[in-house]
Each structure stands twice: as structure tokens, then as C-alpha cells.
Amino acid sequence: MLIQTVIAAARDVFSPALRRILWKSIGLTMALLALVWVGLTRLIDVFLNNHSLSESYPFLDTLAIFLAGFGLFVGLFYLLPAVSAIVAGYFLDDVAEVVEREHYSADAPGRPLPFGKAIFYGLRFGALSLAVNLVALLLLFVPGINIGAFFAANAYLLSREYFELAAGRFWAPEDVQRLRLEHRGTVLAAGAVLAGLVLVPVLNLITPIFGAAMMVHLHKKLTRDPSKRISQRPQDRASIEAR
């Protein structure tokens, strides 16, 4: 199931129907990263200007500038999942509508999340992702733990965020959580795919669109197959019908 979902999402990402959204997503991701870069470089410049070592040890200023630049690069790498979360919240409904129309036209379409709610979810997961990745960043110099911690943390966070955004178009929040927990292994494996994608330079820029498309497919497969469908209680069915 997961392999089929990944292949379907990969095809969707570069399809004509999603190409415009993909470029918008890449543009927004790069713009947010650029804003972070500018802000951090300004802070570093202020710090270095106020703590210049050039008078006594000229070479230390050069070394500090080099280390600061390297630190910025590493920092942006660890910030990418948080930025991805924000971008995904912004474009999720656009991607979901295309995927549902192209592949599941016989089904009732999902209900778009209110714009404010979608952004709130993106910011919430972005803040959580930022906090977790800052901890992973502190483990950068601990051999055998750094990349592993980064991968494991983001596999969980990205699986949770993207799946809840996709499933939230059809289910009440409590049902979305129950669905995710009932299929935690499959959902986490999908998150691992996204965490692996984040590690690949350039390709990691497509994470928001690819993740959204993949989770739409995964949610559909989990709920269409009777053997994998969420166990619905009477009140669950009533809440879904009410929506």
C-alpha cells in the first residue's frame, strides 16, 4: 500500500494539474528560508561587531565568520521541516482538491479546512517541529545520535501533521486522531518517507506538495478498504453525516 501511495504522489507532484501549486510552494518555502537567513545574518553581524577580536587576534574574526556561515547552513537544514509544516498548511486544500478530483472523482469531495484553521495547524506543527529540531540540533555533535534523532523526530512529526491535515477534510478532530492511532505503523512509515526526503538537498523543497498528495492517497486507501477502515461507532457516523 505505502509503495503504491508514494508512486502515486510522485506522479501527482509533477503533473500539469499540480505544477503551478508546486512552483508556488517552492517559492514560498525559499522566501521563508531567505527571511530566516537574513534575520540570522543580521544577528551574527551585530554580535561580531560588538565582540570583535581583530585587534588582538585577527584570524579569529575570519574563523568566526566562517563558522557562523556554516552554522547558518546547518541551522536552515534543521529549520526546513518547520517551514515545510507552515507551507503544507497553506497549500493542503489546493493539493487535496486536485488529487481527489483526479483520482477519486466518484467519492464525495472533502470539506476544505477554514483558512485560519489551516494556517493555525501549520503554525502549530511548525512551532512543535522547530522545538524538536532545535533539540536535535543540540545533538549534532553527538556521534550516532544526531542524524538518527533528526530522522526519527521528523518521521513522527511529519506523519502526524500531514495525515491530520488530509484526514481533517473528512473527519472530526477526535476521529482523525483515532484513525491515525489505529494505523500508526502505516502512517509513521509514510512520515519516514517524508523525513528521508527532507534529507535530500533540492528535492526537499517539494516536501509540502509531495507530503500533502501522499497523505491524501493514504487516507483514501485506509478508509476505502473495509479491512483497514476505521471502526465507526454510531456517534462517529452521526458526526460525519453532519459534516
Rank of each mutant, 00 (worst) to 15 (best):
A106Q: 15
A85F: 05
G69V: 09
I86A: 03
L60C: 09
Y104M: 10
V95F: 04
M30K: 01
A155F: 07
E161C: 07
R42G: 06
R111V: 15
A131T: 12
Q177F: 06
L157V: 14
H219D: 13
L197G: 01
G148N: 08
W23V: 07
V132S: 12
G168M: 03
M30P: 00
A96S: 11
R160D: 09
A167N: 03
I44N: 09
A189M: 08
G196M: 03
L158A: 08
E161I: 07
A167H: 03
L130T: 13
I21Y: 02
L188E: 03
L40F: 08
L28S: 03
A167Q: 01
Q177I: 10
L157W: 06
R233Y: 13
E100P: 10
A8T: 02
L139Y: 02
K228G: 08
A238Y: 11
N50H: 14
R160H: 13
R224C: 09
Y90P: 05
A189P: 02
T186A: 06
Y104Q: 10
N154E: 08
L137I: 10
W23K: 04
L72F: 02
L158R: 02
N49L: 11
P58C: 10
N133Y: 08
T29M: 00
P114I: 11
S84T: 14
G71D: 02
I3V: 12
V95M: 05
V98C: 06
K228Q: 14
L72Y: 02
V36R: 00
G110H: 05
L28F: 03
F91L: 09
L181A: 10
S105G: 12
M215I: 08
L22C: 07
V74G: 03
R243E: 13
E164P: 03
G122I: 07
L35Q: 00
G116Q: 12
Y90I: 13
D94N: 11
A192L: 07
K221R: 15
L79G: 01
S231G: 14
D236R: 12
V87T: 06
L138R: 06
L18Q: 01
L22V: 10
V6A: 05
A64S: 15
L113V: 12
H217E: 11
Y57Q: 15
G110T: 05
A155P: 04
S105E: 12
P143D: 04
R19M: 13
L128K: 14
